[in-house]
């Protein structure tokens, strides 16, 4: 399994080396409100989209916000090549993301993309995707790629309450969907790492994105069970393409840029 992983890794590096980064205006097609503070923004490229890999992100320019100076890095939630659209899954946190939540059909959005590396895609394996909060963002597009590569996909979402368990049908397209809620109002009560599936089933690969404590718990589960695990980090960044050196994460090989050498890291490379 490790040899397979290495092969994929090398292929990915070659592929990413040829990926040109772009800065382009997109047109907002629609904004879907998921609950009080989460929404999905579908934006249409004016030129044909380049290849975008699961785990990559965009950096969007927020207009008309007095307090937002820098772009906002956002995970790519889904890519629809037929419609030529990217979907962004956004949580309203500060003024910048609130302004994004006011965008209407036909509005323009300036985007730098595609940024960062990608999740590895194994073949014919039993894969587990664990997402929490806004960190579920990259998992839908990852689930699609994993299924297409012949993997069995189980997505496990950890949310606060039933109203936060959104888009479950979308995940079902690509495999099994499970939910934990903190208040027990839906699925199993507790955190994702407490879900009974982890006792029942043996997974070959784990992929995760979400709050750091959750990812650390997922990493600990994976390490204990000797399962390869990749996490997607969300550090504050200024540029998104390796120029500012602000978003570093500590790895076994020193500080690395989360934006260019991540956001996806194998847990063995992190000092967790």
């Amino acid at each position: 399994m490790n040899y397979l992983c290495l092969d994929l890794f090398l292929t990915d590096i070659i592929l990413l080396g040829t990926m040109k980064k772009l800065v382009q205006d997109f047109e907002v097609l629609q904004r879907k409100e998921l609950n009080d503070d989460h929404f999905v923004l579908d934006v249409k490229a004016l030129e044909p989209l380049p290849e975008i890999r699961p785990g990559q992100f965009v950096n969007v320019l927020v207009k008309d916000s007095n307090t937002t100076f820098l772009r906002r890095p956002l995970s790519i939630h889904f890519v629809d090549y037929e419609r030529n659209t990217i979907s962004l899954y956004i949580k309203k946190i500060g003024d910048g993301t609130k302004k994004l939540g006011e965008l209407k059909e036909g509005d323009s959005l300036n985007i730098v993309y595609p940024l960062g590396n990608q999740y590895s895609i194994p073949n014919n394996a039993n894969t587990l995707l664990v997402g929490g909060g806004c960190g579920v963002a990259p998992l839908l597009y990852l689930a699609k790629h994993l299924k297409e590569a012949g993997n069995n996909v189980t997505t496990l979402l950890g949310v606060r309450s039933e109203k936060d368990a959104v888009e479950l049908d979308a995940y079902k397209e690509y495999g099994n969907i499970l939910v934990t809620t903190e208040d027990g109002s839906f699925g199993e009560k507790g955190y994702p790492t407490q879900h009974s599936i982890l006792e029942k089933e043996k997974f070959d690969y784990v992929f995760t994105c979400g709050p750091e404590p959750m990812m650390k718990a997922v990493a600990a589960y994976s390490a204990q069970n000797n399962i390869p695990c990749e996490v997607s980090l969300e550090n504050t960044m200024a540029c998104g393409f390796g120029a500012c050196l602000c978003c570093v994460t500590e790895t076994t090989e020193g500080n690395k840029c989360t934006c260019t050498e991540g956001p996806v890291f194998n847990i063995n490379d992190l000092k967790w």
Partner: peptide, 23 residues
């Protein structure tokens, strides 16, 4: 030089603070 530990950047009104530390 490894530079300073994370976090190294903070957005501020019409600007940003950095503490990269010459990595």
């Amino acid at each position: 030089r490894e530079g300073n530990p994370y976090p190294r950047m903070a957005e501020t009104p019409s600007g940003m603070l950095n503490a990269v530390g010459l990595q």
